[in-house]
Structure formats: C-alpha cells, structure tokens
Design a protein around this nucleic acid. Structure first.
Lengths: 148, 148
DNA sequence: TATTGTTATACTCTATAACTATA
DNA sequence: TATAGTTATAGAGTATAACAATA
C-alpha cells in the first residue's frame, strides 16, 4: 500500500508527530476563551509582561521572537488601549521600558484567572501522569527546534 | 513562597503545560524552513489539499477552522499564484471545489519533501519512544479542546 | 428558507529597509 | 560604529455582516 522509499519513511515517521503538534496547538489556541485569545507569538499571551517590572523592547523581542518593527506596532496598540506604558531608561536613553499600567495589571488579574479556570476544565481531562508526560516531551520538542 | 489559593493551585497545575505547549509550537513553527512556513491554521499547511481530489470551501473551512470570508481571500491569493483552481460542482452549483493545479502539485512534491527532511533532522533528536509519547499526549490535548 | 461562497470593512500581525537618537 | 527603537511600506490572516446565487 505504501511505497518504501526514504521520502515515505520520513513521512511515516515524522508526519504524525508534526500533524499532532499542529492540531493540538490549533485546537488549544482556537478555542481559547474569548477576550483573551492566545495567538501564536503575540503579546496577548499572558506570559510576557504579567508579573514583571517591565521589559525593554529588546527583551520582549528576544522572548517572543517578534522583530522590532513589528513590536512597535503591537506596543502602540496596547498603549492605545492604556494597557501598557513606555518609559525611557535613565541609564541608557536608547532603551525603552514597557510595563503594564494599573489597568493592564487589572486586566491580567481578572481575565487571566478566568482563562486559567477555563483551561483547567480542559486540561483536567488528562491525568496527572499524562500532563507530566506532555510537559516533558513538549520540552524536548522545543529544545530540538531551538538548537542552532 | 507561593500562596495557597485555588487560583494559584490552578496556575501551578496547568500553567507549565500551557506554557510548554505554546513554546514548543512556537519553536516548531517559527523555525520552519523558509518558503513553506507553517502558520497557525493556514493553508500553507501541507496537510490540507495535498494528495486530495480537491475539497469544497465548506470542507476546507471545517478542517482548518477558517471562516468562509477569510478563506475566499486565501484561495484568491493561491489562485493568483496559480497553485490552486476553483471548479463549480455540477451536482450542487453552490459548491466550489478547490484543487491543486499541476504547478501546485509540483510545489508540494518538491517543497514538501524538502520540508520533511528538515523536520526529520529536528524530530530525530527525540527517541522513538518519546515521539510516540508525544503523539499520544498531543492527541489527548487535542481531544480535550475539541470536545463540545 | 437554508446553504454556499463573495464582497466590503476594519483590524492585527508579519518582515524589511531606511531612519533617528543615543552610546 | 554599533545598538535601540521608529517609521514607511507591503502583504497576509482574522472576523463580521450584508449580499447573490443556488437548493
């Protein structure tokens, strides 16, 4: 049924994993609770600025893999919504610190837990053992792709 | 160090998994070989039209979770590049079949294997056992989020 | 009436290159 | 010169609502 070629061998071996990774992430991100959608690599991820003293553009970019030009626009929009504010670093005036405003913090403090509760309902369908396994193997995948 | 509240309990329990899922996917998708980038839920995923007789807009939308208005634009662009073509279904003239052109097939036949080879280099860093585990737990995650 | 796909609208994310200000 | 961030440009994905054609 299946041709035995090295091309097909590779497909058989890695396609299912690749597909499952995409599908799992897609299901996860697409059905995130509204108002706090977790898109691929954007700042809407609550992992970035919440519970920090602020970060420079450079730091945010390094962490999220967003290029600086793109980041300016994203921060502009968040600033427009009064969720973050810019502040020039006094030591090095090229640097600009970005930090949550009170309103931004309030959003993270209210919306984020709501999101968590919703996530909990979903992730609870996995056993503790399976969740630990998931964390472990996802870490391996990340390391493999981060290398170089 | 950590407050013991139900909110924090949820964070402790599910945040690491959530974070690893996002980071692993991010690393995977961001470093995909150029020219064939795998974005979140777009048709650039080789899983959609390759090796099919064509699909209707409805079918593609259901499979990729892309809404119909968005899909029209995506197909327009692919058609502009002469990678796909539209054909009205004769039985039900409301339906339009989308199918790879010869050029589209050629792209999938050449670029896709190249992508696979690159993926192989990365995924090979995981043992067979870990890859199987990854497929299994990612399937569980997908099922949890797809339910309802 | 219901379904399939299109159009119009508006917004976000994306990268790149040229630019300004600072170091 | 090098680094941090902005601006300008161009393109792609996103959803929604109103619409046309067909069933």
């Amino acid at each position: 049924m299946v041709e035995i070629t090295s091309k097909n061998a590779a497909r058989q071996t890695f396609m299912p994993l690749m597909r499952e990774l995409v599908r799992a992430y897609q299901a996860f991100s697409h059905y995130s609770a509204d108002g706090f959608r977790l898109s691929g690599s954007s700042l809407t991820q609550p992992f970035t600025l919440g519970n920090t003293e602020g970060m420079t553009f450079k730091e945010i970019g390094d962490k999220t893999l967003i290029t600086k030009g793109t980041l300016t626009g994203i921060i502009d929009r968040l600033e427009g919504k009064k969720l973050v504010k810019r502040r020039t670093d006094k030591q090095d005036r090229r640097r600009i610190m970005v930090r949550l405003t009170r309103r931004g913090e309030r959003l993270f403090d209210t919306e984020f837990p709501r999101q968590i509760i919703w996530m909990k309902k979903k992730f609870s369908q996995l056993s503790k053992k399976d969740r630990d396994e998931a964390i472990r193997v996802l870490g391996l995948i990340r390391e493999a792709f981060e290398a170089e």
